[in-house]
C-alpha cells in the first residue's frame, strides 16, 4: 500500500516538474521569437518534443528525461527575457510608487495661505 502511495507521490511530483518545465520553456520560446508568427511554429515544435515522450512509464527514465530537459532549458535560456514592466527586473519596477498612507497633497495651485 505504501509502495503505491510513494509511487503516486513520485508521479505527481514528476508531473508538476514537467508542467513547470513546459511553462518556462514556452515562455523562453516567446523570448527568443522576434516575431509572433515565428513563435507559433517554435511553440508547436516544443509541444511535439514533450508529446513524443508522453507514454513513457518507467519512473527512472522519466526522471532522467526531465533532468535532461531542464539542463537543455538552462543551456538555451534567454539572456534578456521579457519581464512585465511592474515585476521585479522590469523597466517600471518601483517607479512611481504609491505615496505612503497619511501623506496628503493639496492642489491649490500656488495660493497657499502661509507663504
Amino acid at each position: 500500500m505504501s509502495a503505491t502511495a510513494s509511487y503516486l507521490a513520485r508521479r505527481a511530483a514528476q508531473k508538476e516538474r514537467v508542467r513547470i518545465l513546459y511553462r518556462r520553456a514556452l515562455k523562453d520560446t516567446l523570448n527568443w521569437a522576434v516575431h509572433r508568427h515565428l513563435f507559433y511554429q517554435d511553440a508547436s515544435d516544443l509541444r511535439e518534443k514533450f508529446d513524443a515522450n508522453k507514454h513513457v512509464e518507467d519512473l527512472d527514465t522519466i526522471d532522467r528525461m526531465i533532468a535532461d530537459g531542464e539542463a537543455r532549458y538552462d543551456k538555451w535560456r534567454h539572456p534578456d527575457p521579457y519581464i512585465v514592466p511592474w515585476a521585479p527586473g522590469g523597466s517600471k519596477f518601483t517607479r512611481n510608487p504609491t505615496p505612503p498612507a497619511g501623506i496628503e497633497i493639496i492642489y491649490d495651485y500656488g495660493r497657499e495661505d502661509n507663504s
Binding site: 508542467r19 511553462r23 514556452l26 512585465v84 515585476a87
Partner: peptide, 26 residues
C-alpha cells in the same frame, strides 16, 4: 491535458499583462 492547461494560463497572462509565479500558475 496538463500542457494545454499551461498554454491557457500563459495566454491569460498575456491577455491581462500579468506575470504569475510558476507555482501559482500551476
Amino acid at each position: 491535458d496538463s500542457l494545454d492547461n499551461v498554454e491557457i494560463v500563459m495566454a491569460l497572462e498575456e491577455e491581462f499583462k500579468l506575470e504569475i509565479p510558476d507555482k501559482e500558475a500551476d
